[in-house]
Design a protein around this nucleic acid. Sequence first.
RNA 1: GGGUAGGUGGUCGAGUGGUUAAUGGCACCAGACUGUAAAUCUGGCCGCGAGAGCGUACGUUGGUUCGAAUCCAACCCUGCCCA
Length: 374
Amino acid sequence: MSAIEYELLHIDKNSGARTGVIHTPSGDIRTPVFMPVGTQATVKSVTPEELKEEINAQIILSNTYHLYLRPGYELVKEAGGLHKFMNWDRPILTDSGGFQVFSLSGLRKITEEGVKFTSHLDGSKHLFTPEKVMEIEEALGADIIMAFDECCAYPSDYEYTKKSMERTTRWAKRCKEAHTTENQGLFGIIQGGFYKDLREKSAKDLIDLDFPGYAIGGISVGEPKEEFLDILRYTAPLMPENKPRYLMGVGTPDYLIEAALAGIDMCDCVLPTRLARHGTALTSKGKVVVRNATYERDWTKLDEECDCYTCKNYTKAYIRHLVKTNEILGIRLLSIHNLRFLTKLMERVIIEIENDNLLGFREEFYSKYGYTII
RNA sequence: GGGUAGGUGGUCGAGUGGUUAAUGGCACCAGACUGUAAAUCUGGCCGCGAGAGCGUACGUUGGUUCGAAUCCAACCCUGCCCA
């Protein structure tokens, strides 16, 4: 019995989307699920208690690279692991630093052995090998840990993408060999950029390594939506049906629905908290840039359909005032709202899948939000 | 009353004869944001005009000069010091 087990509950007869449960050492996760990102052992501006009680987040992410630099993985281990350290007793997933290979591309050097990062904090050098990443992620103690990969930039040419994907596969193998803990599930990450034959090869080779879950990485990195959907719809069906399927770095409401339609179980994104810090709310009628002057005297809630703490208590005019005056509460209220919005969206997606109506829901949601179905 | 420092675009504040519709910061108005180097970044911000451009503008009035926010004179106003 692996630390992570997937239980399939229902497949939408009309779309192929699925609901299920991921069993983890820290409890069960109903899927499809949206996972808030808490890079530095905190989902920016909200407390773990709010994540549970107000937002109903089932699982959150944290980050190997950031926690390795500060406060250090030995310290987190000494604290009793991430769960204890941050007072969050539900499941946690740690990303491996593979995204930083992409986002900090000017500060790293890739070799077969691993990636040498120049710290964005103080310029110090740190070599991340698959073995080192496993050591760190095991010390952090998340329920799900990600293999060390390279998230390729968009666009990347075929030759580079192929080389990178094959190296990611070799790194996945090394991760698996180095992984020792039994209470953590190690997920493999399918790469291959925007080339279908590479995606297929990556999926096949990783499946041979028999991970308890699989992720799609390297999309949602700046490409047009058509290309995103094309690779998503091509890759998702290559993933084992009896294991969790995780689409990394998504996203916006439409991408989340598309992911569920493609049979994805898990997504994560910084967007709700980042947008909140930048003065924007996600709502059923589209984005509301509440910082804009048009809301100065708007005495209504952010979203008429929302049941969150923020919408129960505060008006757009007040939130705009907080944002314009740089008050921390503005960020907090918007973060709570945006996180609840996406969490609630996925709760609804589960219901719609169980009613075999996710396609119908997509149409309804898109038209209200202002999206066009592609 | 005497002395002294100063009055610049919404605001604070550079600029001390021409390339200055006038550096910056803030405020204001928008846009971007997708496994977080992001409470960040980008653009706009005198008026009219799609634009080239035109018109106004550095306390007020006058003067010097080919040319003034910048030099001179008078006046008005403000801060500080002395009486």
